[in-house]
Nucleic acid binder design. Sequence first.
DNA 1: TGAACGATTGGAACCGGTTCCACTTGTTTA
DNA 2: TAAACAAGTGGAACCGGTTCCAATCGTTCA
Lengths: 343, 343
Amino acid sequence: MEVTPVTIRDVARKAGVGVGTVSRVLNENPSVSAETRNKVLAAIEALDFAPSPIAQRLSRGRSMTIAVIAPFFTRRSYIERLQGVEHVLSSSGYDLVLYNVESVERRNDCLRLAPRRERVDGLLILSLAPSDEEAAHLVNARVPTVLVDAYHSDLSTVQVDDVTGAMTAVNYLIEQGHNRIGYVGEVLDDNPFRFQPIHDRYIGYRQALESAGIAYDPELHAQGRYGWRGASRMTADLLQVDAPPTAIFAYCDTMALGVLEAAQESGRQIPRDLSVIGFDDVEIAQYFQLTTMRQPLYETGARGAELLMELVDSGNHMPVEHIYLPTELVVRRTTTPADTEFE
Amino acid sequence: MEVTPVTIRDVARKAGVGVGTVSRVLNENPSVSAETRNKVLAAIEALDFAPSPIAQRLSRGRSMTIAVIAPFFTRRSYIERLQGVEHVLSSSGYDLVLYNVESVERRNDCLRLAPRRERVDGLLILSLAPSDEEAAHLVNARVPTVLVDAYHSDLSTVQVDDVTGAMTAVNYLIEQGHNRIGYVGEVLDDNPFRFQPIHDRYIGYRQALESAGIAYDPELHAQGRYGWRGASRMTADLLQVDAPPTAIFAYCDTMALGVLEAAQESGRQIPRDLSVIGFDDVEIAQYFQLTTMRQPLYETGARGAELLMELVDSGNHMPVEHIYLPTELVVRRTTTPADTEFE
DNA sequence: TGAACGATTGGAACCGGTTCCACTTGTTTA
DNA sequence: TAAACAAGTGGAACCGGTTCCAATCGTTCA
């Protein structure tokens, strides 16, 4: 018994109508009489017919597919954004084709090749900022594109204001009386994926210090990779300088975990001896009672997908839009005023 | 300036050949003379032509698409498996269409609707065990299907032996001299997604106790949901019974975190007062120095994808295969022999 | 009463590839 | 020298839908 591919013509024959009529029934075209519609529906039922999405795509000239390019590594924040994207896309009938970016070559491949032809109706890029050349290529190919957690002036974007977020975090520490505030962050100069927040949060840190009249001390600024392990090593070094920091702002919650670990290993108590503030508010931050900047991860993904849907529906004829979602300071138990006396 | 869709016929005209020849060049059919091939390649280059994947799919009768159905929640373990899947698929030229399952209805929708017609060439289902009826439906639709982290006798599967894994974990605790061993797990009787490990790890726990001659004590078995928060609450209760456990086996690392938290809140020191062992070995387990059963998450995903590729290439004519990957006990710092004296 | 009109409907053409059959040309075989 | 054969190529038919144009038929309007 072979699988018999039932086509729209089989249905037409069975129902005694033309193929156009069957197609109209499938597409809920109102100009079909109730009687005819019922005949067709009965035939569809009897033959267990389902239209071929591929044939529909070819004849409609739309792929009903959105490509999502994401570096989903191991990091929680990418997952949460991806969930927001998936949720919106799945309820709008588009297929989500996932391209994972795990190397810089693949990043470049994806940005160059994905928009080729009518392969996809839209492109949603997570966290990867295209170069001017790449952006021009995307615009030129007329593929509706939205960037999430990344910026380019020529493309619509959904982001969080990382500069302001970082400033808020550092300002909070300053308000608490800290003035030796360390920053444990990602490597600034070598950023092959072009992650925007790496740059912006550092800027926010610098600006907060500057506007409070605190001099930037390179000794209190550590850069490195490898998540919490790296952060832990960097923090260990940071805590050994002559005038160690009384507070540390970490680039992300994962790195904040490393900060906490190193602080404990150096015999410090949190928050008495060191205030720590993270960024992202991923789930584990709650477990550690970590004070952090919440950024609406799921929402940026969802909002980006919604924007992309609008862009696709408009035939890519919408003005470029830059959406910023607010961050929020979440105070938990890893921060405290400077010089607090504990019993 | 409109986007001009360049077709194979434009290329044929430009190169002064027939469309069949262009198609042959595209598909690297050897029966094209070098001279003709060069003419065609030049025309392709000149027109910046790229074949339409959709048209290829329609005429070839293959969608070059694999649907991945996954409950990717918030849990790290799903992500790691998904990464393995993505890696294999992306290097074999198939598109990965992601269906996230976040509710039981969506689970049922996906299992019923996804295999409809030639929508996809293959189906990879993560962690969701189909019912007999659903499995029959899948077999009947002749869609190549592989289950990862789930079992059904009629479908190929890639799994870890959870029963043995759990036994290994509990046996280790028994060898360490523990005989009051608690189990903090997921709810057994109400398992709407039909997650297999929920059942199997419990069985392993029971079998390990039984073969060591230790009576199962329902008071030491807590069931609940909501990740570490739930586990934390359950553990708090468990530690208040008359003869509290000296060791706890947690269903997964996330729940083990809750166990650790509750133990600390009850004033216990880990591992002196309570040994804790988890399952999965996700990244955070290293941070906590958690003793756990490592299961090869990435590898199960990758292996499942490879198996699916073989199945697809064979035209779905391969015998059903059940692959088991080994688990491994990873001893870190949350377990210790019973009655150890610490200075 | 005849023309004009709206509601339905059939089906050819089309979307952009692949594939197979027929045909040409040059070479080898009997 | 004719027949057989291989290599290379053109193009119609096809994949399974959608869409548009033309045709039919019962009404409505002048």
